[in-house]
Design a protein around this nucleic acid. Structure first.
Length: 207
DNA sequence: CAGCAGATTGACT
DNA sequence: GTCAATCTGCTGC
């Protein structure tokens, strides 16, 4: 099977069930090819769903709209990349049709391709779980930053492919990380990860 | 090992 | 002014 036939296409992302999409993204591959450099990427092992205007943890809660969140209202799949705590870029996949601001935060990947370039971008010499185990870490490793917010995920810079099958019994869920401000919604079990996978993020392991 | 301060920008939850 | 979908490096046990 060649690369193009393994790519995830629009129908996967246009469905209304963002929590289901978030779960199904486990085992898929996320790749980037930034500035015509080598392809980098790996298998998604941890995600979180953000379910639009009704979700207090979402940047689009109550249809909040700003220069930053404008991208969330676009037709999927596009990247929503924003700066957290003033220095970390976090990468999300925007799903659903235009006007519905659903998002999946990619929290951790298991490196598969372009490890050398990812180590360079992270300023590391040794391969360990700190390369891509965390939303800010994987963005840095993949070369994703603010300028990619709004980039289509059907193009040649950032895209997704079929990966490995993760059996339902290997999928765990838990509350989302770092959303304590979200009231009752902070308790929703909308974080998904692969059981026992050593590339799941550090913050998440404490839970 | 745990705990915590610091980094630093955009939105106001 | 305050806090945020985070991570690092330092302190002290």
């Amino acid at each position: 099977m060649n690369s193009s036939s393994r790519r995830l296409t629009a129908p996967f992302f246009l469905r209304p069930d963002v929590v289901g999409i978030s779960r199904e993204l486990l085992g898929k591959c996320l790749f980037t090819r930034i500035n015509h450099c080598a392809v980098t990427g790996g298998i998604i092992v941890e995600t979180e769903a953000y379910a639009g205007p009704q979700d207090r943890a979402s940047h689009a809660y109550n249809n909040r709209f700003s220069k930053r969140t404008e991208v969330m209202y676009r037709r999927g799949p596009v990247a929503y990349v924003y700066l957290c705590y003033g220095l970390h870029w976090l990468f999300n996949i925007i799903t659903n049709v235009e006007g519905v601001p659903h998002a999946v935060l990619i929290r951790a990947i298991q490196p598969v391709k372009g490890t050398k370039l990812m180590l360079e971008r992270r300023g590391k010499s040794r391969l360990d779980c700190r390369l891509t185990s965390g939303p800010a870490l994987l963005s840095q490793a993949l070369g994703i930053c603010g300028r990619h917010s709004g980039t289509s995920l059907l193009g040649h810079e950032i895209w997704l492919e079929e990966g490995i099958n993760v059996p339902p019994g290997m999928i765990c869920s838990s509350p989302r990380i770092g959303v304590s401000y979200a009231g009752q919604d902070a308790r929703l079990p909308w974080r998904f990860y692969v059981r026992g996978n050593s590339w799941v993020s550090r913050a998440a392991l404490k839970k």
